[in-house]
Nucleic acid binder design. Structure first.
Lengths: 168, 168
DNA sequence: TGCTAATATTTCGACATCGAATAGTTCGTA
DNA sequence: TACGAACTATTCGATGTCGAAATATTAGCA
């Protein structure tokens, strides 16, 4: 190996420095870069953990979207929510239905539409996986006090409140 | 359409509630879920912006990794940094090299290895894109004061400092 | 009613990604 | 030196994803 892979904090510092040098604003880049470093690590862990359940991240995204919605969703809505082309969703749903995790039911009021919902087995898999990932996520935040976690959540939620206004 | 797509804040609230109901801890889920909502939106914007430059997110990841490293990297290192299989990197590099954005040079001290570096054109594209994305990112943080941005960055950096210890 | 535009899902061909296998090189050590 | 284990990049076949086209249905309106 050429050189040991740099640590996450070191990569973060370099990234911020590089973006600032290229014309980015420091207060912005510190936050955005940190969010992305964190997500990247989380994604790696999720992929590994989901492999144990024989699932891809994309399939998991479908399951969580249905769980969060609390009601049936159409393939188009699922494609939107999971950032994927509608045509890709068809195949994903075929696969998930084949495993018995979701089911498709026709919408009687609009016959172009199909409703997708979690089966009992799908729900079981969902809560199993959540309890597993909560362990890792708690570890990630272990160095933050309760007050700090609250403050971190609050600041992020301020940002989120703006999100929809921007891409209009 | 069935029902209007819910707003980002609304989706966030539902997500936290669902995860907590499934056995997750609230202080954890508020933070983790918020980070992921934010990343998802950012990714959508990046994909759109990169499309203008005729690039995919994966190709952009290669360019930024090289820019941040500040020195040539091997295909394996790039695969690690961008969360992709080494075999996929071969094709990506072929494409980027075809466009003149990167170049491969053999390592004379170890003939199994190849060094990849940004060309002048690659650097130009990098700083062009950074200045573009910084605009959107600033918009995202517009509701936060300087002090709040600093605090947000600090808290995230505390989390990042722990990251490497966890997946050991 | 009848016609056009819009919506929703699926099919299709092209391309990106994956894991396994391949080929070549270096390192450790007997 | 000689041999085997470890490493590096690539090729290969299978699968997932994409955008465009096809199919079917609904909505708007003259």
């Amino acid at each position: 190996m050429a050189r040991r892979t740099p640590s996450a904090p070191e990569l973060h510092r370099r990234a911020v420095a590089t973006y600032v040098a290229a014309g980015g604003e420091e207060s912005v880049q510190r936050v955005i870069t940190a969010v992305q470093s964190l997500t990247k690590k989380l994604d790696q862990w999720y992929v590994r953990q989901l492999a144990d359940l024989d699932m891809t991240a994309g399939e998991w995204a479908v399951v969580t979207s249905l769980a969060k919605a609390g009601e049936p969703l159409t393939p188009s809505q699922l494609a939107d929510l999971t950032n994927v082309a509608p045509s890709s969703m068809t195949h994903r749903l075929d696969k998930l239905a084949g495993r018995g995790l979701i089911e498709r039911t026709p919408d009687d009021t609009n016959r172009t539409r199909v409703f997708v919902s979690l089966t009992e087995e799908g729900w079981q898999l969902f809560s199993l996986a959540i309890r597993g990932s909560d362990v890792v996520e708690s570890d990630v935040l272990q160095d933050l006090s309760d007050r700090e976690r609250g403050e971190l959540a609050r600041l992020l939620e301020v940002v989120i409140d703006r999100l929809d206004d921007i891409d209009a």
